[in-house]
Design a protein around this nucleic acid. Sequence first.
DNA 1: CTGTATCCTAGTTGATACTG
DNA 2: CAGTATCAACTAGGATACAG
Lengths: 156, 156
Amino acid sequence: MTVLQGRLADRDAWSAVGECPVEKTMALLGTKTAMLIMREAYYGTTRFDDFWRRIGVTKAAAAARLSELVDAGLLERRPYREPGQRSRDEYVLTAAGEDFMPVVWAMFEWGRRHLPNRTPLRLAHADCGAEASVEIRCEKGHRVPPDELVVRTVRS
Amino acid sequence: MTVLQGRLADRDAWSAVGECPVEKTMALLGTKTAMLIMREAYYGTTRFDDFWRRIGVTKAAAAARLSELVDAGLLERRPYREPGQRSRDEYVLTAAGEDFMPVVWAMFEWGRRHLPNRTPLRLAHADCGAEASVEIRCEKGHRVPPDELVVRTVRS
DNA sequence: CTGTATCCTAGTTGATACTG
DNA sequence: CAGTATCAACTAGGATACAG
């Protein structure tokens, strides 16, 4: 499958190189609740009450994860005011939060295809109506199959 | 951002529709160790001893996660024999395991871009040498930006 | 090299009650 | 509606020892 290329002879040294971004990302977002909050945000949810009820977790869990996601810069608290109500906060996606979409939708697609379920939900491209999914592509636009993907080092 | 389309008037019902694949995927693979095992498998690791040492977890944790990944069908135990040694098992990727690549590499790319780190590692397309990343595309080949992605229901 | 067994700690979550 | 505060349950993971 994937082949490692670069200057490091000792494969064991790779894991230490700069500390893996996968590991750091999991440390930050590797909980069921955080991932589902992001899914909800992509669905368009912004209010606290909608988050915890739609996800099906307790308010305590939702509040803890929401705060972490705000601190991590994926969501932003933005004040809003319903007519006749006091000002409250809603949680809106930041650019970094939108950039996280491939992770969530890649999980969605993998689960949809490889786990038993009957979800009628599909990703689609609004502009042309075709179904969408998550793929690995190179800068030249080629689709990159597993056996053509390599991990290599770049010199700083 | 993402807009929900379909026949369901009540947004609260969406989360219940078929049970979300993201949630199921997280239940199965939502641990740091499982995700790093998949990363290692993509790096080309197949031996038990390499897995736990390169990932930096205990043998107990690695063994538990490896068994789960085998049960879930992402990895397969395959007997091999070193000359003069008894037969042992190695862990090799299945088709379902390869399909999981977009999840791991999407995390890799997000972490690399949005978390402080100096990893010199980059994904690349072996055939043409260009850098690679994970993107959302529709069947017609259009790149789908966040605001053009929708989730809709299909009738069974 | 490829694990298993045991004990212990830390983090996530559920349940429930309370506040503005 | 939008949280906070507690407490208890479960699980992942580290440390260590042992085994084929």
